Simulated assay, not measured.
Amino acid sequence: MSTSQTPGHRDIVPITDESIRLGQFLKLAGLADSGAQAREMLEDGLVAVNGEPEERRGRQLRRADLVTVDLPAGEVRAVVG
């Protein structure tokens, strides 16, 4: 995984449109290296949006949504900015 975040750290990741799909956001935020890895993370139940488990890559995120990924090293969070 390419993320350089410290577990528990929260980054604000800016987007250019009003919304972004969750799979795209995972890559943009550096939480997944590829779409395939994002899909696997979602299928494995490692991703939550605003505290709720999420499995849909196409879930539309908007500014201020909080995405949490449960990694072996600890939780990593990113906010849609």
Rank of each mutant, 00 (worst) to 15 (best):
M1I: 02
M1P: 06
S2G: 05
T3W: 14
S4K: 12
S4D: 14
S4H: 12
Q5S: 07
Q5T: 04
Q5K: 10
T6V: 14
T6P: 00
P7N: 02
G8F: 03
G8Y: 06
G8H: 08
H9P: 00
H9Q: 15
H9N: 10
R10Q: 13
R10P: 00
D11T: 08
D11L: 10
V13P: 05
V13T: 15
I15H: 15
I15G: 15
T16R: 13
T16S: 15
D17R: 15
D17A: 12
I20F: 07
G23Q: 08
G23H: 04
G23T: 01
Q24C: 04
F25P: 11
F25T: 06
F25D: 13
F25A: 06
L26P: 11
L26S: 07
K27A: 02
L28A: 14
A29W: 09
A29K: 07
G30S: 04
G30D: 08
G30Q: 03
G30E: 09
L31F: 07
L31Y: 05
L31W: 04
A32V: 02
D33W: 05
S34R: 05
S34V: 02
S34P: 10
A36W: 05
Q37G: 07
Q37P: 02
Q37F: 03
A38H: 05
A38R: 03
A38S: 10
A38W: 03
R39H: 08
R39K: 15
R39S: 10
E40C: 02
E40H: 13
E40R: 15
M41S: 04
M41A: 11
L42Y: 04
L42C: 11
E43R: 09
D44A: 10
D44H: 14
G45E: 11
G45H: 08
A48R: 12
V49K: 06
N50W: 03
N50Y: 04
N50R: 05
G51I: 08
G51F: 07
E52H: 09
P53M: 02
E54D: 12
E55R: 09
E55A: 09
E55C: 04
R56A: 10
R56C: 01
R57V: 00
G58V: 00
R59W: 03
R59Y: 08
R59T: 14
Q60G: 09
Q60D: 14
Q60Y: 12
L61E: 09
L61Y: 11
L61C: 08
L61G: 06
R62H: 11
R62D: 14
R62Y: 06
R63V: 06
R63C: 01
A64C: 07
A64P: 00
D65C: 05
D65S: 05
V67S: 10
V67T: 08
T68Y: 01
T68S: 11
V69R: 09
D70N: 09
L71C: 10
L71I: 00
A73R: 14
A73D: 13
V76W: 01
V76I: 09
V76P: 00
V76G: 01
R77G: 01
A78L: 05
V79G: 05
V79E: 15
V79I: 14
V80N: 12
V80F: 10
V80P: 15
G81N: 06
G81S: 08
